[in-house]
Design a protein around this nucleic acid. Structure first.
Length: 328
DNA sequence: CGGTAGCCTGTGTG
DNA sequence: ACACACAGGCTAC
């Protein structure tokens, strides 16, 4: 087992680990603390990664199975560049979005360097099926369960085993629904099982490959054929796995933000109807342009409860949350 | 067709 | 302690 620290050159303004890894895009990253230094442990590309933010670079370690070992800093750096999509220069985009939108400018103070991750398609399909009508903490535990039950073991660190995200054929097994039911997945157990079977019946790997060649509209429609995937989940997958950066997933948070700050005339509904969904997406696409989904993710982060620390006293903290009334 | 009740269950809030 | 609302929605009416 290696203990080498590698170095990926990258400015903080181009990548903020905290907001990017903890912002509800990916459910497999956890914060670990080592000598007061904030580190992030997560799994992607069948490897366990430990990342640490520095001023002008990211320090990282990699754990993987002997079979897959690359042992080459350049190869690892390329995997990270691809995962974080570092070819996209966001400092410049942030300037454009800030010019177009004062609320974005406000959010950007705290949430600089937020990136859309380029995540594995299969992992995102099943992770975001879990996300429906659910809390992030619970979603994370469900994704972890899927990996533990059906994923290949990658390695063991400090007595804890880590698993890759499962292959679709294993999730398509007959026994899956019942197993997930008894493990607290609720009605999503059936969605996962049926979706895995649908993908296998549609050609498995071939279906995935084809999905990647489709336009945004085609891919979204194709994804919505799967049980448990509606417009919102399909947009999450389009945005975070298929490189359709103008897809805008509209959830209750975005609906609330849109109604409060951008589109006050939106009807007051309990659930987002199809028309409201499309109107909100169009509004943000008009406002932010071709990478609107990316900008939207910054707004989403700014509204997440977990980022509302004790720094909400003044208006320069960057959060867009409605101020809670202070008790007198 | 647009709208909405019902769904599993953990977590946060009072 | 012990409800009770509500989660980054979707399906089926």
């Amino acid at each position: 087992m290696k203990h080498i620290w590698y170095k990926l050159p990258c400015k903080q303004n181009e990548l903020q680990l905290l907001g990017t890894l903890n912002g509800g895009q990916s459910f497999r990253w956890k914060k670990i603390c080592d000598e007061q230094k904030e580190q992030w442990l997560g799994v992607f590309f069948n490897k366990v990664w430990i990342l640490q933010q520095e001023n002008d670079h990211i320090l990282y370690k990699v754990h993987e199975t002997k079979l897959n070992e690359l042992e080459d800093e350049m190869s690892y750096n390329n995997l990270l560049r691809s995962y974080f999509q570092l070819h996209v220069n966001i400092e410049k985009l942030y300037e454009e979005w800030s010019t177009a939108d004062p609320y974005f400018k406000e959010a950007a103070k705290q949430f600089y360097g937020i990136r859309i991750l380029k995540q594995d398609i299969v992992e995102n399909i099943f992770s975001f099926i879990c996300s429906s009508n659910n809390h992030i903490t619970r979603i994370s535990s469900m994704v972890e369960k899927l990996a533990t039950f059906y994923g290949e073991e990658i390695c063991e660190i400090d007595g804890e085993k880590y698993y890759a995200f499962p292959k679709v054929n294993l999730l398509a097994q007959q026994s899956v629904e019942e197993k997930l039911r008894t493990n607290g997945f609720g009605y999503r157990a059936k969605y996962i099982s049926k979706t895995a079977q649908h993908i296998m019946d549609s050609g498995g790997e071939k279906w995935i490959d084809k999905l990647q060649t489709m336009s945004y509209e085609e891919a979204k429609k194709e994804l919505m054929l799967l049980t448990g995937i509606g417009a919102k989940v399909a947009d999450c997958i389009c945005l975070m796995s298929l490189n359709h950066l103008h897809a805008i997933p509209v959830d209750t948070h975005i609906y609330q933000i849109a109604k409060r700050l951008y589109m006050p005339k939106l009807p007051d509904k309990k659930t987002v109807t199809e028309k409201i969904y499309n109107d909100i997406g169009d509004h943000f696409r008009d406002l932010y342009g071709p990478l609107a989904g990316w900008a939207h993710t910054v707004l989403f982060c700014a509204d997440l409860k977990k980022f509302q620390g004790n720094n909400t006293e003044n208006s320069s903290s960057g959060n867009l949350r409605k101020k809670s009334k202070s008790k007198k």
